[in-house]
Amino acid sequence: MFKYTVCFVKKNNELLMLNREKAPIMGVWNGVGGKIEKSETPDIGALREVYEETGIDVGTFFSKGTVTWETPEGELDGIYVYLYIADTDLLYETPKKTREGILDWKSIDWILHPLNLGIAEMVAQYLPVLLKKEGIHAFTYKNGQTYIS
């Protein structure tokens, strides 16, 4: 079992993104999420993290799979990835300063723009698949590329 989750809250053609103030990935935009506590499953940890970081009570969400990579020590590490489709009438004012960083709605086109250097390294590679394909996916990140299996 991996230690972390990342969750993307989608409303229409936007995702709620977090510009992190702390390491890892300080200063870049990513989904919300965090560490799974010892007594939690990845699903429960994802729900808790979304609520803690945004105040949004995620009712229905989709586990979209995992992203894995090899650590410098040669060990397998990874993260559980989730997608939540928010109600179109959800009112959530941004930008919003939180203890983790700044939350803001970002258009999917902006997030995936090839010249956007402010998005977490792997997100632009796996996010298009998560948003378009149903099912649970396994992504492997190796040598700067993400592979779908």
Rank of each mutant, 00 (worst) to 15 (best):
R48T: 04
D104C: 11
Y4I: 05
K3F: 08
D43A: 14
G78S: 04
T66S: 01
Y80G: 11
I56Q: 08
V50P: 06
K35H: 07
K142Y: 06
L112M: 11
A124P: 04
E49I: 05
L115R: 00
W105N: 05
E134V: 03
E134F: 03
N116D: 06
K132L: 14
G34I: 09
E75Q: 08
S39V: 08
I79W: 05
D77M: 04
K142A: 12
W69D: 01
A138C: 10
K133W: 09
L15T: 13
K38H: 15
E52T: 11
N143I: 00
E134A: 03
E37D: 15
D89S: 10
G74K: 03
I119G: 06
V67F: 00
W110Y: 15
I36R: 02
T41E: 09
K35W: 04
K106P: 02
K142L: 14
E37Y: 09
T60K: 14
T66G: 00
R20E: 10
D89P: 03
H137W: 05
K64L: 10
P128E: 04
Y147H: 09
T60E: 15
F62I: 10
N19A: 00
W105Q: 04
I25Y: 10
I79R: 09
K142H: 13
S107V: 02
Y84K: 05
I56K: 07
R20T: 12
K22E: 04
P42K: 05
K64R: 14
G78K: 01
I111Q: 00
L117Y: 07
W105Y: 02
G135F: 12
V9Q: 12
G78Y: 04
L127E: 01
V123T: 10
T94P: 08
Y141G: 05
L117R: 12
L16P: 07
L115C: 02
G101A: 12
I25K: 12
W29Q: 11
V9W: 02
L15C: 08
C7F: 06
G118A: 04
T94M: 08
P128I: 01
G65N: 06
K96P: 01
S107C: 09
L112H: 07
Y126F: 15
T140V: 06
E21Q: 03
F2Y: 15
Y147N: 07
T66K: 08
T41V: 14
N116Q: 00
N143M: 05
D87V: 07
G55C: 12
K38L: 14
N12I: 10
V67N: 02
K11R: 14
A138E: 13
Y147T: 13
F8T: 12
E100D: 12
T68F: 07
D43P: 04
K133T: 09
L91E: 15
F8I: 13
Y126L: 14
K64P: 13
I85E: 14
A46Y: 13
E93W: 12
P72R: 01
K106I: 04
E70T: 11
Y147S: 03
Y126A: 11
L127T: 00
E73R: 03
